[in-house]
Amino acid sequence: MALYQAILELADDNLVLGHRVSEWCGHAPLLEEDLAMPNMALDLIGTARTLYDYAGKLEGKGQSEDDMAYLRDEREYRNCLLVERRNDDFAHTMLRQLYFAAFMKPFWDAAANSSDEVIRGVAGKAVKEMAYHIRHAGEWVIRLGDGTEESAARMKDAVQALAMYVDELFVSSAAAAEAEAAGILPKRADMRPAFDAVINHIFAEAMLTTPEVAYPQTGGRDGLHGEDLGHMLSVMQALYRAHPGASW
């Protein structure tokens, strides 16, 4: 059950962020980004699907990937708080993406040595995708941080708003800790040096600094979320829930 829970956390992170990114589709600041956003969303949702499918099998109650994505409420979602933050402006969206990918890239790198075959499979694909997300989002963070006065100010605002959600990435829930001890998932805390190296490098070029965070925000792994997640889920789940048992 612990592994099921740990996999669910990972799947939720990927689905929630993928959904958030997909909200940009058709509304991006330039056409090239209208193509890049769905690309990133597809990577994340693809990873989520594989993980939900696996979690369903681990649980053994016959839940499909869709049952898990569409039938759980806010309190049952186990994603970290960073990924549920609303898109706000393009600076917030790109920074959120960078933070997440800068964590997940070394995570999947290490997961290539997992004792679990499914995790190794996911890791092999996801690590390349996360490298691309770091590149894409990182380039934007640099452009915006070192662009115009307005973009620099917006980028700084984004850092102020999101830095407090970073620490939670490195905290393992009890379920994750069990999976880590079993050699199935890499230890979250171990990702810190790789994460810091990427962020420091990009922030230096973007003329940004990491602020002191007085009160790091956590709670997502216990299903304690902000208010935005419920609205996201109600949009996402409405149709599936309106037709119980239907095939689509």
């Binding site: 689905l15 959904h19 997909s22 909200e23 589709c25 058709g26 509304h27 056409l31 209208d34 193509l35 769905p38 690309n39 969303a41 597809l42 949702i45 693809g46 989520a48 699907r49 939900y52 990937e65 869709d66 994505a69 569409y70 949009v235 996402m236 409405a238 149709l239 599936y240 037709h243 239907a246 689509w248």
Partner: peptide, 27 residues
């Protein structure tokens, strides 16, 4: 795009995202 966030399954959501992305590519 109006239905990307409401697609009834994850498979359909992914397929719709890919389609809308194709259309942007055509543009």
């Amino acid at each position: 795009g109006n239905w990307i966030t409401r697609a009834p399954t994850l498979r359909r959501k992914a397929a719709l995202l890919a389609k809308v992305q194709d259309e942007g590519g055509h543009g």
